[in-house]
């Protein structure tokens, strides 16, 4: 059976069907992300004074990733415009760049996630908290997903070594890379902040990497960014199909193919749109 209005507009809506379909889908997506954004608001507004973390994410990396997504948003619309102008080769280039941008975004996001999984906060029994990278005897390199419970179970371990972050606790808006070694002209207490410090296992009250269990902030951060990343992957898969095997349709039904590019582009812009809000909300505020 022939499905009508795949390329010609339906008389009553004035639109080809897929366009109505994608907008209905995007409307449901608005509600999906809206629900999670409202969760974020509720968690944040109700957080106890001074407990909402700031400056734990890497702002330069986040900014760069925002630029990557924005770039992919222009190339996706240029790919569609190229088809409208009948330039299939240019379409291939723009669509290709879009897919590469999507991949770049995912690689950068993975690096960010990895940094979080190996970066720790330690709460000591005397009330002090320290952030930094830890060494655990018997574990090669940076341990992933270590917790105080796991430490507890490691009978042979009686201490850990922590390399505190250059700017302990008071990270305000600045999310500087830990490597950024500042000169020693800081005041007394901060001067020794960089030096590795031995911490007895018995003194540790809680230890957590920057994983969802760390705090409500990281719980909502990972929920929102992982859901967004799933959308990036889904969009990239569809666009890769339309760049590769799916592009054969250009020869048989160019109008319908152009519409497919428009519809996948609409989804992609939506993914970009979500990120436009996620970036300031999670990284900057």
């Amino acid at each position: 059976m022939e499905v009508p209005y795949t390329s010609k507009p339906r008389p009553d809506t004035g639109l080809y069907n897929a366009k109505v379909g994608i907008w209905l889908f995007l409307a449901s997506e608005v509600m999906l992300f809206g629900a999670l954004f409202s969760s974020y608001i509720l968690l944040r507004v109700n957080a106890l004074e001074g407990t909402w973390p700031h400056g734990l994410l890497n702002i330069p990396i986040g900014t760069f990733n925002t630029a990557v997504l924005i770039t992919s948003s222009i190339t996706v619309v240029m790919a569609w415009a190229s088809l409208k102008l009948g330039q299939f080769n240019r379409f291939k280039i723009y669509q290709g760049i879009t897919i590469l941008c999507a991949l770049a975004f995912m690689v950068i996001k993975s690096v960010e996630y990895k940094d979080k999984f190996t970066h720790y906060q330690v709460w000591l029994k005397d009330g002090e908290t320290i952030r930094g990278h830890i060494e655990v005897p018997g574990i090669e390199g940076k341990p992933w997903f270590m917790t105080h419970k796991k430490l507890e179970a490691m009978e042979a371990v009686d201490h850990i070594t922590i390399h505190p972050d250059p700017k302990p606790h008071v990270a305000s808006a600045g999310g500087e890379a830990p490597e950024a070694h500042k000169s020693e002209n800081h005041g007394g207490a901060e001067e020794h902040a960089h030096e590795p410090r031995r911490i007895e296992k018995a003194d540790i009250k809680r230890l957590s990497a920057f994983v969802p269990a760390h705090s409500t902030y990281f719980a909502i951060y990972f929920t929102l960014t992982a859901l967004h990343a799933l959308h990036v992957m889904g969009g990239a898969l569809v666009m890769a199909y339309l760049w590769g095997p799916g592009s054969k349709m250009w020869k048989t039904d160019p109008e319908r193919f152009t519409n497919r590019i428009e519809v996948s582009g609409l989804f992609w812009h939506f993914v970009d749109l979500v990120w436009i809000f996620l970036f300031p909300v999670l990284y900057l505020l």
């Binding site: 948003s73 222009i74 996706v76 619309v77 582009g265 812009h269 970009d272 749109l273 436009i276 809000f277 970036f279 300031p280 909300v281 900057l284 505020l285």
Partner: peptide
């Protein structure tokens, strides 16, 4: 920050 994000969102939704 939300104002700037809204302007950006308007540009993407409105034109792209």
């Amino acid at each position: 920050a939300l104002l700037i994000a809204s302007v950006k969102a308007f540009l993407v939704a409105g034109f792209f």
